[in-house]
Structures are given as structure tokens and as C-alpha cells.
Amino acid sequence: MKSKKGFLISFMALIPMLFLSGCDTHMVVFEPKGPAAREILGLINWSLVLMLLVVVVVFGLFGYIIWKYRDRPERKDYEPPEEHGSTALEITWTVIPILIVIALTIPTVKSIYNLEKVPKGYENKKPITINVTSADWKWIFSYPEQGIETVNYVNIPAGTPVKFKLTSAGTMQSFWVPALGGQKYTMNKMETQLYLTADKPGEFLGRNTNFNGRGYADMEFTVEAQSPQKFKKWIEEVKNTAPKLTEKKYESLLDPTHLGRLTFNGTHLAWVDHGKMDSKTYLNPEKYRVHGYQGQIFKDEDTSKNKNKKDEAMNMDGHSMDGMDMKGEKDGGGH
């Protein structure tokens, strides 16, 4: 008897919790602002229905059984029967989960495939491509078609599918804009793709969900979906006013730092695409030192050691790195 009351108590504990959070019950996953997020939400809702069913059945059965068959003084002499099982019952509770799994599998597989394509209803719109490069601890967005680059914010035209090409300059991150759709990893020397579309203009929060060191907590960015006209105007404006992105500047962006919003003319894709198998590796282990006993760093892992030693020599080093890069390309071509 005690036991059941206890479970009621522990589950009722949930209710005040929901009230406590009453001032802010927004759950971003349940408020989709684009077709991809909507597709996923449909799937989540369907699974919630089935899972709720399971929970209700099991909890109900559980409560009933422990209530009915609990040890009471008047049952002291009751000796439970010998019972080894029941083939019919065991088959029943094998088949029902199988049916539930099938009911979940079919829409899951459909959605998995749908999410890799331009969303339904937007097929006739020409998608724009944005290259996303994550670095410690910032997000770099390159617009190859428009020839501009932004840091920690990205503007997209509303109602147009955006093809994000994701890669990383170093550690692995995960690119997530929950209001618009699911996430995908960004990995060095690999490229992943993600289609996101915003139905209407608006501002959405995006962030990294994959832990990547000290600066992880603040690795957020904003996505602003703008009307196509406004987006076009913004591009024009950037082209006219933003500073040009140089290689030297870009390398400083890759240092492990926190940056605010930045905007540049030109993209780093002109000299490096981190998504390519044989792209240049940018490493800076010295700058990742934390407290404690320091381990040895291996030569080829410290590609920018010289640069760190003497800041004024940076320019020269930049040149020598150009040379290295070309050599790397030659090697790459050989295979």
C-alpha cells in the first residue's frame, strides 16, 4: 500500500514542476518554424501517442497487480500457485511490441529520407548554398554564390530552401537550429549537408551541441530569415561596406577564441575548404594548454608554432604556408 502511494507522490512531483516552469513553457522542438522541424515534430507526436499508450498500459497493470496481490494479514496463509508461464500470453506481449515497432519504423524511415532532400512544397524554389565552418569556438558562414562571409550569425532568405554544407576547421561540432530542423555534425576533412528552410521571416537561435572544450557553452549563433528583398539589400550592403577577408585575418579567426558578430567581403573558400580530404590542417595546440602537467606535443601537429612564437613574423610565415598548401595540393592530385 505504501508503495503505490509513493509512486503517485513521485509522479505527482512532475505537476508542480510544470507549474514552476509555467512562466515559460515554450519548448522549441514543439514550435517548428520550417518544414524540416515540422516533419520531425510529426514523427515525435506520433511516437508520443504510442509511447503514452505503452506507459498507460504498463503503469495500469503494475498498479493493479501490486495493489491486488500485496501481502495483507488476511492473506498470510495464501500460498501462490506454481506457475511457469503461458505461451499464449508470452506470444501476445512479443507480438504487440513488434507491431508498435513496425508502426514507428515506417514513418521514421520515410522521414529520414525526406530530411535529406529539399522539403516538399519548396521543390520549385532554387536553393541557396551556404558553407558552414565551425571552429573553436565560433561559427563561420560563407556564401559562395554571393561572395561574403559572416561569423556567428547567418542571414537567409525566408521561404527559400538553404543547403548548408557543414565542415569543421578542427574539433567536431554539431550544427543545430532547433526551430528549423534537426542537427548534423561538422567534421574536419569531411563534408555533411543539411537542408533547412524558414517559412517566414524571423530570428532563431542556433548552437553547437557537441562538446568541444572550454568555449563550448557559448558557441551560439543566430539565424535571421529575411524577406528576399531585405536579404538582397543586406548582401549589397555587405559587399559595399564590409572589410575584405584576408588569409591572415582568417587564420586569426581560427584561433581558439570567442568572437562577436563579424562580416567580411570574400570567402575563405578561395584558399581552403576544410571539408576536402586533403585540405590543409590548421593546428594550434599551444593555445589549448590548461592547468596541470603538460604533455609533449608532436612536431607535425603544431603547424603554426612559428607563427605563435613571433607575431611580427606572421606575414612571412603566411607565405611559407602558401607554399606548403600548394605542395599539399600537388600531393593530393597524385592519388
Partner: peptide, 10 residues
């Protein structure tokens, strides 16, 4: 559910 996991992951 793979597709739903894109929203829950991490």
C-alpha cells in the same frame, strides 16, 4: 527513431 534523434541528440 533516427529522424527524431536529430532534435534530441546531445
Amino acid at each position: 527513431m533516427g529522424a527524431a534523434d536529430y532534435q534530441y541528440h546531445n
